[in-house]
Amino acid sequence: MSVTIYHNPACGTSRNTLALIRNAGIEPVVIEYLRDPPERATLAELIAKAGLTVREAIRQKDTPYLELGLDDPGVTDGQLLEAMLAHPILINRPFVAAPEGVRLCRPSELVLDILPAPQRGAFTKEDGEQVIDEQGRRIDHG
């Protein structure tokens, strides 16, 4: 029942995702990818298993995305991966790998689709939004 989160402790979405994993009674492998970025093959595999393109997995906000010219449609997936490894802040977060699959957990509740265990109780995100009720069921806000 191994779950791995590529985590940025400064990111609220990443903190909420980690807390949801722990709310299921799972202590994941936590990789702080800014300090310990994944290997190129691992990053490419995470992106592919999440069903994303490399361009969809790159973070633009508060990164050197524009300064590096990565918005140019001629930049290849290989070049984007190299930029993400050279500047890990460009890796969108948090990626979570679990037995049921890989997700880029934006919003954090996407992690619920791949966790191998149910939520154990109520959960409220840092912004005050309750996403899990007292019985461990997902609250539908739609």
Rank of each mutant, 00 (worst) to 15 (best):
A50Q: 03
V96N: 09
G101K: 00
R137P: 11
R59D: 02
I114S: 00
L81M: 05
P9G: 07
P9C: 02
I89P: 12
A117V: 11
E39K: 07
N16R: 13
C105G: 02
R137S: 15
A57H: 01
I91Q: 03
P94T: 12
A44R: 13
H87N: 15
S2C: 04
R93A: 02
D113M: 08
M1W: 02
K49Q: 11
A44S: 13
D113I: 04
V29T: 14
D140H: 15
Q79E: 14
M1P: 09
G142S: 13
A48W: 01
D71Y: 12
L52D: 06
P116T: 06
E126W: 10
T63W: 04
V3C: 01
G69C: 08
T76Y: 15
L81G: 01
G51R: 01
A83C: 10
N8R: 15
I21C: 15
A97S: 07
S14V: 00
A50Y: 03
K49A: 10
I132Y: 10
N8M: 09
I114L: 03
N92W: 02
E100G: 12
A24N: 12
L18D: 06
E27N: 14
A10V: 14
T53P: 00
R40C: 08
R93Q: 06
H141F: 04
E129Q: 13
D127M: 08
L81V: 13
E134L: 10
A117Q: 12
P99D: 04
R138E: 11
T13D: 11
R59P: 00
E100L: 09
P73G: 13
A41E: 15
E134D: 15
R35Y: 14
I58S: 00
L46F: 01
C11T: 04
H141V: 05
L66C: 04
M84P: 07
R40F: 06
V30Q: 10
G51F: 00
R103W: 03
P37W: 13
T17R: 01
V96D: 07
Q79N: 05
K61H: 09
L68C: 06
T42G: 14
L66W: 09
T13A: 09
L115M: 13
T4N: 02
Y6C: 07
I58R: 01
I26E: 12
R120K: 15
R15M: 14
Q60D: 07
N16L: 09
G51I: 01
P9K: 03
